[in-house]
Simulated assay, not measured.
Amino acid sequence: MLPDPSLDLAHYRVTFFFGPEPDAQHPERLSCVFNVKKRSWKGGVQVAVEINLEQLDRARRALGWSAWLDRVLTGVPDDEHEGYRARAEDLLAQALCACKLDLRLQAGLAQENQRIRAESWSRELDRAVVAHQAVIKSHILTELDLTEDSNLPADK
């Protein structure tokens, strides 16, 4: 998710697996799971990345989320807004988890299945969201098949 991967990140292949999923024991948390493989490893590992609702709210504020999403949905029929909004929320959570994973990868990652807790990398994630908001928004637009310029689905 970060636009300028370090040389260390180039050694990893990251594949989104699933999420965001709520945590049954901690309803204020969401998690996404990624498969991570480093070139030198014989096999990949699964990394669950947690974010909490507070981190998600801070990201929404930093991105001007509500106003931006309202603007990009102006060309979408009203009866489709709810579906687009729900998908956009999932994509935002996925993007935040991917950003947090990238931060962890830059610091190095052991070859074992693991969980990156919601409390970890919180300040760094806040800075990454601000620094890379254009990339995050562009990713979400692409996944929604929308363009910011035309406010219409990209295939129309």
Results as ranks from 00 to 15, higher is better:
residue 154 A to R: 15
residue 75 G to S: 08
residue 128 A to N: 08
residue 42 K to I: 10
residue 11 H to A: 15
residue 134 A to M: 02
residue 117 R to S: 08
residue 100 K to S: 06
residue 82 E to G: 09
residue 140 I to D: 09
residue 130 V to K: 08
residue 9 L to F: 02
residue 22 P to Y: 03
residue 107 A to R: 09
residue 81 H to D: 12
residue 117 R to E: 14
residue 93 A to I: 05
residue 123 R to C: 05
residue 156 K to S: 11
residue 117 R to C: 04
residue 144 L to C: 09
residue 98 A to H: 14
residue 105 L to A: 06
residue 35 N to Q: 11
residue 47 V to I: 15
residue 49 V to T: 10
residue 73 L to K: 09
residue 154 A to G: 07
residue 99 C to R: 03
residue 43 G to P: 00
residue 36 V to R: 06
residue 102 D to R: 06
residue 135 V to R: 06
residue 58 R to F: 05
residue 131 A to K: 07
residue 152 L to V: 12
residue 2 L to S: 11
residue 66 S to E: 15
residue 139 H to T: 15
residue 13 R to D: 13
residue 119 E to T: 11
residue 153 P to D: 08
residue 122 S to Y: 06
residue 89 E to H: 04
residue 97 C to Y: 01
residue 123 R to E: 15
residue 60 R to K: 15
residue 1 M to P: 02
residue 105 L to F: 01
residue 29 R to I: 05
residue 112 E to P: 00
residue 120 S to L: 09
residue 130 V to E: 12
residue 4 D to P: 00
residue 13 R to L: 13
residue 115 R to F: 02
residue 119 E to Q: 11
residue 98 A to K: 12
residue 50 E to M: 07
residue 23 D to G: 00
residue 43 G to Y: 10
residue 148 E to L: 04
residue 80 E to T: 05
residue 63 L to V: 05
residue 43 G to R: 14
residue 113 N to C: 10
residue 149 D to A: 13
residue 22 P to S: 15
residue 153 P to C: 08
residue 63 L to K: 06
residue 121 W to M: 06
residue 108 G to M: 07
residue 124 E to P: 01
residue 32 C to E: 06
residue 47 V to D: 02
residue 126 D to A: 15
residue 125 L to P: 03
residue 85 R to T: 11
residue 97 C to D: 05
residue 39 R to P: 04
residue 114 Q to Y: 00
